[in-house]
């Protein structure tokens, strides 16, 4: 009887230890990274943060830290790549916005595809809210809409109708935005130029004609991918191939 009690207890303890150990290592790595950053050891901070990101921590704040570490390490391309990745998680974070804008001032190339300020005003929720937030708002509004419709079907209260119209409008708006975000994430891919300067060529080989030159931190649109190269579009009229290692996909 005693053996029967001890065996499950030991199992629970082992499972608990298994569960706790990686978390502690993650926290330790993170703390090492912040300590290295504080001490000005940017490569060590980058290594720590990147190991966390590679380990599956998908968090905008971690990406922000990586952007900071790369910027301090004077690697503008990778800094902007991580800032861009962080922006997909927390576009409304003021610290991130500030550092991102500052990093943009260090780039050499003009922005290729300029976004209309009118679009940012008209579809403010898309640009101000994280994609995750948009999805959850869509889910909640959808639930509220059908609940309200159910109540209306049972109680037949006319007073509910204006509220239902409003909820329906919000649901359509946020669901459409969420769907657009999914489509955009799947079909429209962006990348950031990583080296200080790269030649965009008409083909894969180094002997292919150099079409134009881009510099670190420039954001481009990825049109096509091969095993070794990316076909990027800087502006409507400037398209060419770059090595995969020269551009980080956001």
């Amino acid at each position: 009887m005693k053996r029967l009690v001890i065996l499950p207890s030991a199992l629970v303890l082992v499972l608990a230890l298994l569960a706790v150990t990686p978390a502690s290592e993650t926290a330790l790595t993170f703390m090492n990274g912040t300590e290295s950053y504080r001490n000005g050891d940017w490569p060590a901070a980058i290594a720590a943060f990147e190991s966390l990101a590679d380990g599956g921590v998908d968090n905008g704040m971690l990406f922000y830290n990586l952007g900071n570490a790369y910027l301090k390490n004077e690697d503008l391309g990778r800094s902007l790549l991580w800032y861009e990745r962080a922006l997909t998680h927390m576009p409304d974070d003021p610290d991130l916005r500030f550092n991102y804008e500052y990093a943009l001032t260090l780039t050499k190339d003009e922005r290729g595809e300029k976004q209309s300020p009118l679009l940012r005003i008209l579809f403010f929720w898309k640009y101000q809210l994280a994609q995750r937030t948009v999805r959850w708002i869509a889910v909640l509004l959808n639930a509220a809409l059908w609940a309200a419709l159910s109540v209306l079907a049972i109680r037949k209260k006319r007073l509910l109708r204006p509220s239902i119209v409003l909820i329906a409008a919000g649901t359509i708006l946020f669901t459409a935005t969420a769907v657009f975000n999914y489509v955009e994430a799947t079909h429209i891919r962006h990348a950031v130029i990583l080296p200080n300067q790269i030649a965009v060529r008409s083909g894969f080989t180094d002997s292919a004609t150099q079409l134009f030159v881009l510099h670190a931190g420039t954001k481009v649109c990825v049109e096509r991918e091969s095993d070794t190269h990316l076909l990027i579009r800087y502006t409507e009229d400037k398209i060419g191939w770059v090595k995969r290692s020269d551009a980080g996909i956001i």
Binding site: T26, F30, N59, L62
Partner: peptide, 10 residues
């Protein structure tokens, strides 16, 4: 420590 919380997207 929020930095380490994976925020998995839907």
């Amino acid at each position: 420590m929020d930095t380490l919380k994976p925020r998995r997207s839907l």
